[in-house]
Design a protein around this nucleic acid. Sequence first.
DNA 1: ATGACGATGCACT
DNA 2: GTGCATCGTCATG
Length: 191
Amino acid sequence: MTPLQVDFFARDAVTVAKALIGVRLLVDGVGGPIVETEAYDRDDPASHSFNGPTKRNAVMFGPPGFAYVYRIYGAHWCLNVVCGGDPRGAVLIRALEPTDGLHAMAERRGTSEERLLCSGPGKLCQALAVTGAHDGLALDAPPFAFQAADSEQALAIGPRIGLTKAADTPWRFGAAGSRFLSKPFPKGVAA
DNA sequence: ATGACGATGCACT
DNA sequence: GTGCATCGTCATG
């Protein structure tokens, strides 16, 4: 298992979003291979960094390689990795395949159905116990652990989910055919 | 001080 | 497939 270097994150968000598919993400030892991400690049109207710094998004204006965690719909947490670009881009971690710490995840999620443990950004944060307390933490140090993918992944590509701005931009990436996605991709595969 | 608006998830038809 | 709870954050007055 090769830990990811900080340079991995210091690229544009689309590149990082693609490269993260298949990477194993553990938080305090709980997690598994990432199967779904979304890119939010600079000059992207849907990105939280687009309208300049605020108290919430301050970490997105710091160095790459840190976690940006925020609350959505007053109820759920979302985990992002801060990337390169100016203003910064970010990648939303949307889903992963639960392999490590299944018992802890099932307990936190209130279900033992593996399909439902991490198949969405809010679910993933609940299963991995990611909260606002993780906002601004370095990604190359505990409790986070990113481990390089073992092999090349076949990528599925599609439009991002839940947006009203730039809703057609195809910056959602996934492991083709995975059953742990938050939703199926509209159509087939691509490189 | 107040109002609009979500990078969602879940219950229900 | 559709409806909506729920509340922090930000923009505005």
